[in-house]
Amino acid sequence: MNRPESAWLRRPRPQRHPAVRLLCLPHAGGSTALYRSWKDLLPPEVEPVLVCPPGREDRMDEPLPKELPELVAGLARAVEPLLDRPWAVFGHSMGATVAHELVLRLLRGRHRAPEHLFVSAREAPQHHHGGTVHLLDDDALAAELIRLGGTSPELLAMAEVRGLVLPAVRGDYRLIETYAADPQGPVPCPMTALVGEADTELTAEEAAGWEKWTTGPFQLLTFPGGHFYLSDRPRVVVDAVRRRLLIPA
């Protein structure tokens, strides 16, 4: 039987003693594909650890969590063995909310604080939007994914692909849209919010609101592009992450 971390986590470049492990959390319905190029862009001192939630890749047959705290609890158990080294978290869209709640849960368990928390393309909790996307029919849900970008329209036109992709997308949207948005305190580490300048899903003010949720330094970075700005310019984004982890070029 696999250990929990072997199901949740992908380590394309495993290291026993990295300077820092960087957990990378995907968007709603997303997979590790969002970050696969990062292993060749991050410096050797940083070990990328890609998070694969239930309902996708080789976890397709696993039940989806019923609420966001259940997802966070499962992920926390998986990452605990890797916290013997300095660590940081990068979460995109829904993944930013999961990353924040993950850090808070691990801190309550008396684990070491992360070196940095990166929250990408997500409004701060006090600006949480909620929504009803998870209630849309398959055609409307596919159209929403196409509108946001990051998913090939050609793939979503294929019934077999929809059958594989949409259940996880719908399940994740249900988690984030019904999320209570009541985190229990700020994090004691630096935080960087990242946003695409043409992202229609949040405003710069909503992204800047993350400053309330850290007792450390805060910075807001804006990049060209929309909701999936990081897919358009992965090298630029990874370089910004590297600099904030204080890893020399």
Score class of each variant (00 low, 15 high):
residue 8 W to I: 05
residue 192 T to M: 01
residue 92 H to Y: 06
residue 19 A to S: 12
residue 205 E to P: 03
residue 103 V to H: 01
residue 62 E to R: 15
residue 85 R to T: 04
residue 244 R to N: 04
residue 229 Y to G: 07
residue 71 L to F: 09
residue 36 R to Y: 03
residue 95 G to I: 06
residue 50 L to G: 00
residue 20 V to D: 03
residue 203 T to N: 01
residue 116 H to I: 08
residue 122 R to G: 01
residue 94 M to E: 06
residue 204 A to P: 00
residue 153 P to A: 11
residue 14 P to G: 05
residue 49 V to N: 00
residue 183 P to L: 06
residue 203 T to P: 03
residue 98 V to Y: 12
residue 162 R to W: 09
residue 206 E to W: 10
residue 81 P to I: 07
residue 211 E to Q: 12
residue 158 M to K: 10
residue 180 A to M: 11
residue 203 T to A: 00
residue 150 G to P: 07
residue 118 F to N: 00
residue 177 E to I: 06
residue 211 E to A: 13
residue 191 M to G: 02
residue 80 E to S: 07
residue 1 M to R: 12
residue 234 P to L: 01
residue 147 R to T: 12
residue 34 L to D: 08
residue 134 H to P: 02
residue 22 L to T: 04
residue 130 G to I: 06
residue 181 A to K: 11
residue 64 L to F: 15
residue 89 V to E: 00
residue 29 G to S: 08
residue 157 A to N: 12
residue 210 W to I: 08
residue 76 A to E: 02
residue 161 V to I: 13
residue 90 F to L: 09
residue 161 V to L: 08
residue 77 R to Q: 14
residue 175 L to E: 04
residue 194 L to F: 13
residue 225 G to S: 04
residue 131 G to P: 05
residue 138 D to N: 08
residue 39 K to N: 09
residue 129 H to N: 06
residue 226 G to L: 10
residue 227 H to D: 02
residue 148 L to M: 11
residue 29 G to M: 03
residue 61 D to F: 13
residue 217 P to L: 11
residue 87 W to F: 13
residue 236 V to D: 15
residue 247 I to K: 00
residue 127 H to Q: 07
residue 235 R to A: 14
residue 213 W to Y: 15
residue 106 L to Y: 13
residue 169 V to E: 06
residue 90 F to E: 03
residue 56 R to S: 11
residue 211 E to C: 09
residue 150 G to A: 04
residue 93 S to I: 07
residue 169 V to T: 06
residue 166 L to S: 02
residue 31 S to M: 07
residue 147 R to S: 12
residue 172 D to L: 07
residue 115 E to K: 15
residue 127 H to N: 12
residue 95 G to P: 09
residue 71 L to Y: 10
residue 86 P to D: 13
residue 85 R to K: 12
residue 110 R to G: 10
residue 91 G to M: 05
residue 156 L to W: 09
residue 60 M to C: 12
residue 134 H to S: 10
residue 119 V to F: 13
residue 196 G to M: 11
residue 71 L to T: 08
residue 61 D to K: 13
residue 39 K to C: 13
residue 145 L to N: 01
residue 151 T to P: 00
residue 73 A to D: 10
residue 242 R to E: 00
residue 93 S to W: 03
residue 223 F to M: 10
residue 96 A to D: 04
residue 144 E to D: 12
residue 113 A to W: 15
residue 93 S to F: 05
residue 114 P to V: 13
residue 249 A to W: 04
residue 185 G to S: 11
residue 168 A to M: 06
residue 8 W to K: 04
residue 107 L to Y: 08
residue 21 R to K: 05
residue 19 A to P: 00
residue 107 L to N: 09
residue 213 W to F: 15
residue 186 P to Y: 07
residue 43 P to F: 00
residue 48 P to G: 04
residue 221 L to R: 15
residue 96 A to N: 00
residue 11 R to M: 15
residue 234 P to N: 05
residue 59 R to W: 07
residue 223 F to A: 10
residue 77 R to P: 04
residue 167 P to G: 04
residue 212 K to T: 13
residue 157 A to T: 03
residue 100 H to W: 07
residue 221 L to H: 15
residue 165 V to T: 03
residue 113 A to E: 15
residue 106 L to H: 08
residue 116 H to T: 09
residue 231 S to M: 14
residue 20 V to S: 03
residue 179 Y to P: 01
residue 91 G to R: 06
